[in-house]
Write a protein that binds this DNA or RNA. Structure first.
Lengths: 198, 198
DNA sequence: GTCTATATTGCGATAGAC
DNA sequence: GTCTATCGCAATATAGAC
């Protein structure tokens, strides 16, 4: 059974960890944001790191659903698989705006929670995107000299970087007010065109 | 005149800030790594933040050189400009392996040094890449419906993500032992193919 | 379950000797 | 220039009341 304090901590800790990073957030700050006492963080989560891990698990939960959905849809045409991935990133980011930053933090400087949460999800996502590209190359739709691992990193990097850097890039070179979906589609267009067989 | 202690601090602080992030590194740690006393950090740099800013400036210095070189070469064919950018990223990362991580940290959660260092360099780099794409579109080589700002973010994201995530991605899905240049070339091939006029 | 109070450690920062 | 010593404070963590 989940208490109110527990839920509040999970809710208010997410943006703090996402915006300032694990090290830069203090337990006092977390307690104050959730309007509970410091002791409760130890009572429920065993400390800052435990709370952080719980936040990660809660934020990543929607991805499990998405992965299930994708597995249910396959097999599908490779081009559609690529588009689905990009749309999935947009969708997930809309539903939980802190997730991409948390993920990015873990990729840049992994904490003790790396294996528990990140590897569990990220490796699956990249593996499934990688598989889509491999199929496309095997069936002759994509170029046959395509290295699917590098191509995977390329597409994933484009999508991630956009959502991570967007707020800041806008501050010194205002982007046109397109939606995130429009960006995702443009990325996919360039990418698919780039890997298609001539 | 640069003292030995000053130089040592700049040298040993760079990897610490890059790997653990500004907040997670303590002044004691920095002093110990450089084998000098804490007080010297205040004497020379006025504190942790001052040292951090000095590290950023030192690490970013090679970029100024690269920017000069590019300005000297232009005008050039747009395709060549794109390739030059990607090669430049590889080159810079080889010479100062901490730079990309420091940059990434600043993009994710900007410190007080953001304007001083980051905006000065990053905005120039992205602007020049953006200009190359605009020229290419104007001269009919690239697609005419290309949004050069989004395309810029896409390419920059691919390159950055590769160097940031590579060490970790390799740990759970070993990449083929290609060189960084090979990756850069593949990225550029996909990207150029993707934005070229049919 | 939730709080207040407190122990303890480590931090950033400075003063002053050399 | 460089160090040692130390101050004040904020951080993590726990004990014990309710």
């Amino acid at each position: 059974m989940e208490t109110d304090a527990q839920a509040r901590l999970l809710e208010f800790a997410a943006p703090l960890f996402a915006q300032k990073g694990f090290a830069a957030v203090s337990i006092r700050e977390l307690a104050q944001a959730a309007d509970v006492s410091i002791a409760l963080i130890y009572y429920y989560f065993g400390g800052k790191e435990g709370l952080y891990q719980a936040v990660l698990e809660a934020q990543f939960a929607p991805i499990e659903v998405l992965l299930e959905k994708v597995r249910g849809l396959s097999p599908m045409p490779p081009e559609e698989g690529v588009r689905l991935y990009a749309r999935g990133v947009v969708e997930v980011h809309r539903r939980s705006p802190y997730l991409l930053r948390l993920m990015n933090s873990e990729l840049v400087k992994p904490t003790a929670c790396f294996d528990v949460v990140i590897q569990k999800y990220i490796s699956q996502i990249l593996a499934s995107l990688s598989a889509v590209l491999r199929e496309g190359a095997a069936s002759g739709i994509f170029k046959d000299n395509l290295n699917e691992q590098y191509a995977t990193i390329s597409l994933a990097g484009s999508m991630n970087f956009f959502f991570i850097a967007k707020p800041l890039l806008m501050s010194f070179a205002p982007l046109p007010e397109f939606t995130d979906e429009v960006y995702a589609d443009q990325i996919v267009d360039i990418f698919l065109h780039g890997i298609m067989r001539p």
